[in-house]
Computed example of a mutant assay.
Amino acid sequence: MSSSVSALITNPHNIIKDYDNLLEIGKISDHISPDSETLIKLNLSWSLYYPACSTEPWQLDGVASALRSRGYHNLTATENRTVVTKIEKGVVGNKWSPVLQKYNIPFIPLTDVEWKPYQIHAETPALDEIFEGTHTLPSFFVGKNMIHLPTVKTHGHTTMTGAMKNAFGGLITERRHHCHRLIHEVLVDLLKIQKEIHQGIFAIMDGAVCGNGPGPRTMIPYEGNILLASHDQVAIDSISAKIMGFDPMQIPFIRMAHDEGLGCGDPDQIEILGDDISNLNFRFFTGKSPVVAGDQLFRKGKLSFLEPLVFKTSLFMLAVFGSAFYHDYLWYNLVGRRRIHSFSKTPWGRLFDQY
């Protein structure tokens, strides 16, 4: 199957209709059967709301509306926690609750489901090394369709984050922070697993508001006014990276997935359906927050010899506290709230306030 990415330029007035058109152009029914149970994997990068950080409410609204109108009756939304995020708080803070209620879509936290060992047929060397060959997955994932709802944003660990990274929060428990040392290799392993356990995979990425700089949290909001969708997880990440101003084939997880035949990472080989986005270049940069920089210092930097002590003993709780204090109390109050106030005056900010 050839690789294509659907793209539409959007605005706050037409966003719901544009999502419907996006899925029509992307022929989602050819890749995700309406007759099968379909999971919607949300993206929760922060329990608090911050523009482009997590799945936007209009993104969930537009996708849910488009799916319901196409006969997708068996839908379930899901997301996991991390050591520094709380699912219940995130569902409320990011205004997912009213949208899920509007379309009568149940939400199942991955903390409430059974995780079972799964025998993976593909070679997953990075995961094998990190978890010593024992792989547990949410049992209710197996055999179902998967739709990912990431946003267009940068990431201090992976340059950018998108469809492939969204599986990171679904297929690994809150212990997934141990994967940061081999993060690019892990994302490739996870795509292999997805191709084994899901009937179909589709990604719908919101770039109405994007995140630039030290992602995935402490970013600079940017009005990108772009929507992307694809059945090829590698291709949509490639096009998103290109729009942000990066060379996709220089991003390790995209290049490795492309080389292993898991999708197309070369933007010159990807067909763009919908609007012409060939001239888009947001000229983003990837920065590193003190938390990300510290994580990398102890996992694969000059202090990596301390990794077992810092991350595998009770001292890790100090790192968790430090991350929560820096993000939720220090940065959010000193910098984030000011940026959110400015964002609230934009058309997208006013749309968020309506939910």
Results as ranks from 00 to 15, higher is better:
residue 242 K to N: 11
residue 228 L to S: 07
residue 245 G to I: 01
residue 232 D to S: 04
residue 267 P to C: 04
residue 225 N to C: 08
residue 222 Y to C: 11
residue 254 I to N: 02
residue 235 A to S: 09
residue 226 I to Q: 03
residue 274 G to M: 06
residue 229 A to Q: 03
residue 272 I to P: 04
residue 234 V to T: 13
residue 243 I to M: 14
residue 241 A to H: 09
residue 258 H to Y: 10
residue 262 L to Q: 01
residue 237 D to Y: 06
residue 249 M to P: 12
residue 264 C to K: 06
residue 261 G to K: 05
residue 222 Y to W: 12
residue 239 I to L: 12
residue 265 G to S: 11
residue 224 G to S: 10
residue 236 I to G: 00
residue 225 N to P: 04
residue 268 D to F: 14
residue 228 L to P: 02
residue 238 S to H: 04
residue 270 I to C: 05
residue 232 D to P: 06
residue 238 S to N: 10
residue 257 A to N: 08
residue 258 H to A: 02
residue 234 V to I: 12
residue 277 I to Q: 00
residue 227 L to S: 09
residue 274 G to P: 04
residue 223 E to F: 14
residue 272 I to K: 07
residue 248 P to I: 07
residue 246 F to S: 12
residue 276 D to W: 07
residue 222 Y to L: 14
residue 237 D to H: 05
residue 236 I to Y: 04
residue 237 D to L: 07
residue 259 D to P: 08
residue 269 Q to L: 11
residue 260 E to W: 12
residue 241 A to I: 10
residue 246 F to A: 13
residue 272 I to N: 03
residue 225 N to D: 12
residue 265 G to I: 08
residue 243 I to C: 15
residue 278 S to L: 14
residue 225 N to R: 08
residue 254 I to P: 06
residue 266 D to H: 04
residue 228 L to A: 09
residue 234 V to S: 01
residue 251 I to S: 03
residue 255 R to F: 01
residue 274 G to L: 08
residue 239 I to Y: 02
residue 245 G to T: 04
